[in-house]
Design a protein around this nucleic acid. Structure first.
Length: 632
RNA sequence: GGAUCCGUUGCCCAGCCAGGAUAAGGCACCGGACUUCUAAUCCGGUGAUCGCAGGUUCGAAUCCUGCCGGAUCCGCCA
């Protein structure tokens, strides 16, 4: 499909015709000029010197002449202006508006996809947020979920077949910690009885355990440190008697005994001890039912959930098979390892312990194979924070050694820090996901109340909830995803400036114009109350555009390209930045250009522009899972 | 110690892949705009040796090298 509104590409083709330089090469040389330059697109002919061995100014003069002869065949160009080595192109906004109006109204769906190739559709598995079941979701998970959902939308929009899955890490030492604490201090109470959200209830015991452990650890802190130092020494220098003594002191301390209890419980779990298993499934079901409440707020549904408890000891056969094929190496003690020489990877990675048991990475290998069996995917995206960069690189390298065919992508997003530093769930220093949502919601309840005191409780809550989620999602998505950021509820979540609320406001403003029009018996393109488009027509006459209208129209015409760039690079912030800019242009337009009180021709034109902004804004927000409001 | 990522105004952040004109926004601050289609908005102003030093280039925030500063990771844990 050809995107007729990709003027960058059209200009590249045009210049290609007169210079014989391939248009693919020219495409990226055509840029949007710095603000303040009167041009929509421009090319600096110095950049063409590798193709044409002349001075940049001369090249510009030559191209300009040649283009002048054929520019009348390209009505989308209004004017070409040469400034030194620069060729500046000014587009014909009436032509652009014409195309925009036609495409948006006649076939919106093919318009928004016009940057996307329609062949080559693929099957994609996207895994997130893959949390542990020992504590509630926190702010990091929110970023994970919000990013993951956006990737799902992007791929679905591209026409790919998308499978959204999760891996629940529901077994292991961390779960045993919550269990142990519950056994000791829980007194058989339940989330219901203690009036806690069930995952918070479970998390409470995890924190209790960790604090208790830290306290006990203190009494043998010195010994632990000494032991570590001794172990760091080379084998010949180690004082074996000292190590033995230190070990014994640690083991016999309260801390050591606690550690032993933990290990015992883990072994019991693995052996299927009924009592341990019963407690385990009880606590897990609490955690999961808590997660589900949070998922509901984020409208998160997985097609499939993999449970670590089902697969933790799988993958052994795959590794042994690899060993047989000499992909891996077996050590003297029986452990199977993979060796790497690539930069950025560890020298080796253990895949099977010397006793033959599996490790986390073994299960990861298995899961990759399982996903392939389940979905026969072309691409598998792991939405996981950048602290696991090395683990994922290692996993992908092993898969590649095994001749694994699927394309794996670690969608490695940045950490979220608090003013006080990194979140530490063990110490309970976290920003809890449910609390964040609740705090923002309360904030928006206040804001809505300040403006409208007479709303029904239901309407108030609906608006506040929509605004809160828009603010939260947009706040996360507007940052480039690899970037770390510092979260401070007070300062970070604002309803002014570059926010999701700013975008919602534009949408509500447009609806408000339409409502007023309907009220005054003026024909408008959309009825917000009925959520219905009204039969609309091309403006009967196009007078000259003001700069405010012109900016908006050109911005609107770029939408398909932004969508594709955003999808291609999996960078939601590109779409977010675009929508902000669109909203900015709209607010300026709204401020400068009266709509309903204008004469018919101008009114129809401006209403048409409003409607296109509304449609595109809604579409963009929908892709990043932000619901719109027709009144706010 | 090694690996990976990051460093742009008082603060937040885009631009870096594909080097070019006056480095784009937002917050905060100062000054303006609501008898008008929603002021959760708009207009104006103040504010940047793009971490430092070299190199490549006619030209570097962008590419290369070194250094400084910060984060993360480097388990037969999960």
């Amino acid at each position: 499909m050809i995107n007729t509104m990709d003027y960058q590409l059209k200009l590249a083709s045009l210049i290609s015709v007169v210079t014989k330089i391939p248009k693919e090469k020219l495409y990226f040389l055509i840029k949007e000029p710095t603000k303040g330059i009167e041009a929509d697109w421009s090319i600096n002919c110095f950049t063409l010197r590798s193709f044409i061995k002349k001075d940049g100014n001369e090249i510009a003069v030559e191209i300009e002449e040649k283009i002048r002869n054929i520019v009348h065949n390209h009505p989308f160009i209004f004017k070409v202006v040469r400034v030194g080595p620069y060729l500046n192109f000014i587009l014909n906004e009436i032509y652009v508006f014409n195309e925009l109006f036609t495409q948006v109204n006649k076939n919106f769906s093919s318009f928004v996809r016009s940057g996307f190739p329609q062949d080559n559709l693929i099957t994609v598995v996207i895994e997130f947020p893959s949390q542990n079941t020992n504590k509630p979701l926190h702010l990091g998970h929110i970023r994970n979920i919000v990013l993951g959902q956006t990737l799902v939308s992007f791929h679905e929009f591209a026409g790919n077949s998308v499978h959204q899955v999760n891996l629940l890490n529901d077994r292991g030492v961390h779960i045993c910690k919550s269990m142990l604490a519950y056994k000791r201090w829980g007194r058989n109470t339940t989330p219901n009885k203690s009036k806690l959200k069930p995952d918070h209830f479970v998390g409470k015991y995890y924190v209790t355990y960790s604090r208790h452990e830290a306290k006990l650890k203190q009494s043998v802190q010195k010994e632990i440190q000494e032991l570590e130092e001794e172990r760091k020494k080379s084998k010949t220098e180690r004082d074996l008697a000292k190590i033995k003594k230190l070990k014994s002191v640690i083991q016999n301390s309260k801390y050591g005994k606690l550690q032993q209890k933990l290990t015992d419980m883990l072994v019991k779990w693995e052996n299927g001890d009924p009592e341990v298993r019963k407690l385990w499934s009880k606590m897990n079901s609490w955690a999961i039912s808590g997660f589900e409440q949070t998922y509901k707020i984020f409208d998160l549904n997985h097609e499939k959930v993999y449970f670590e408890s089902n697969i933790y000891d799988k993958g052994r056969e795959i590794v042994l098979d690899g060993l047989e094929k000499d992909y891996f190496v077996q050590l003297d003690d029986g452990a199977v390892i993979a060796r790497f020489i690539k930069k950025g990877l560890p020298k080796e990675k253990v895949l099977l312990r010397s006793d033959g048991t599996t490790l986390y990475i073994t299960q990861d290998i298995f899961l990759a194979m399982q996903k392939m069996k389940d979905y026969n995917y072309d691409m598998s995206i792991y939405v996981i924070g950048n602290e696991q960069d090395m683990q994922l690189r290692t996993l992908f390298e092993i898969l590649s050694i095994l001749g694994f065919s699927g394309k794996n992508i670690h969608y490695s997003y940045g950490m979220i820090y608090l003013k006080s530093g990194k979140m530490k769930s063990r110490e309970g220093i976290i920003v809890d996901a449910d609390n964040v949502v609740e705090d923002i919601r309360e904030l928006s309840v206040q804001e809505v109340k300040n403006r409208y005191s007479n709303l029904s409780e239901k309407e108030l809550n609906y608006r506040a909830q929509t605004i809160a989620m828009a603010a939260l999602r947009f706040f996360i998505l507007k940052y480039e995803y690899t970037r770390d950021f510092i979260f401070d509820l007070e300062e970070s979540i604002s309803f002014e400036g570059e926010t999701g609320v700013y975008l919602l406001y534009v949408y509500a403003r447009i609806c408000s114009v339409f409502n007023k029009g309907i009220q005054d018996n003026i024909q408008v393109p959309y009825n917000p109350h009925k959520n219905a488009q009204i039969k609309w027509h091309y403006p009967s006459k196009i007078p000259a555009f003001s700069p405010y209208e012109r900016n908006l129209i050109l911005q609107l015409s770029k939408y398909p390209n932004v969508l594709f760039d955003s999808y291609k690079a999996l960078k939601p912030h590109l779409l977010c930045r675009y929508l902000l800019e669109l909203a900015q242009f709209f607010n300026i337009f709204y401020h400068e250009c009266p709509i309903l009180k204008e004469e018919k021709e101008i009114r129809e034109l401006r209403l048409s522009i409003c409607e296109i902004v509304r449609i595109i804004l809604k579409h963009g927000l929908n892709l990043i899972h932000i619901d719109i409001l027709t009144e706010m």
